[in-house]
Write a protein that binds this DNA or RNA. Sequence first.
DNA 1: GAAGATTGACTGTTCAATCTTT
DNA 2: AAAGATTGAACAGTCAATCTTC
Lengths: 175, 175
Amino acid sequence: MSSTEPPVARTDAADAERRGLAVAAWAALLQVHAALVPSLDQLLIRRTGLPLRWYDVLLELAAAPERRLLMGELGQRVVLSRTRVSRIVDELADAGLVRKESNPWDGRSSYATLTNEGLVRYRAAAPVYLAGIEREFAGSLTDADLSAVASALSKVLNRPLQIEGGPEGSNDHNA
Amino acid sequence: MSSTEPPVARTDAADAERRGLAVAAWAALLQVHAALVPSLDQLLIRRTGLPLRWYDVLLELAAAPERRLLMGELGQRVVLSRTRVSRIVDELADAGLVRKESNPWDGRSSYATLTNEGLVRYRAAAPVYLAGIEREFAGSLTDADLSAVASALSKVLNRPLQIEGGPEGSNDHNA
DNA sequence: GAAGATTGACTGTTCAATCTTT
DNA sequence: AAAGATTGAACAGTCAATCTTC
């Protein structure tokens, strides 16, 4: 197994330091997420009546070409399972913020289309959410901090999915 | 860095750019979390039988003075609600990895104590988790990236909780 | 039979009410 | 009555099975 290792072995000390750095960064990410997501969710609900899961969907629809997307496309953009998209769009349709329309060219798929009221509600919520991000997250950080975080985390995302090699079990947790 | 605020009001253009940076960093954090947490959770379950929520609790107990913590302390360290700590510790007790003991000096509170088996299982799981973090997260990043992420996100955490000023509603979402 | 989507049952989390001890 | 913790009911999210259309 020499191919994935540096040409010269790292020292144990360097390895330990590297691991400490990795854990510190990952732990901080988890804690920030755990602290801020519920807080921003509550903020949005209090001030706009929209929970975060609704906001995310409305955001994608508002940015889409005809203000509509196929359910599958929508799921990909919001990083949601098919099941969850289905359920959330149902909630939004009940609330009148989204309309479900069939696709005339392919009867299997269907569109989620933003209604006028949905657009109004989204536009009212956007500045609240942005202000929340600034207040709870970005407010503590310099522009350089923000750039560093964005660029580092983007690298993580743009990496081809790591598949674990091994005999046991399947790992299509994202299927 | 004489102050965290600019001496003169920012221009609209600078504001917009700042907001874009903040949103990009926040969005990247959410996406990394959404992609990696389920993946690491599955990895841990497949290879060690411990779900991530168990691992987090075992980690804190293993690092604690007598390998035990009051339920409340435990909740604070893992960033979990009282209810959830209670439920997870029950699961761990059923599995024999933790023991619940009463506090002789204060009958209201109770300790969660790591059992020998719990310690063994934790020690077996730790390298799996660390390797997962390196492979899925840190592997894409330089040491400088990791330091920048850890330092920036720590600033967010160490900031005194932001309380929203305003007449409406309470905001004790973390009570 | 595969793709797109939905449904029912199950697991996990949260909210409000409760119990006990201080 | 306040602090520490737990419980039951409601809610959200996931997994496997299903339905329809291609």
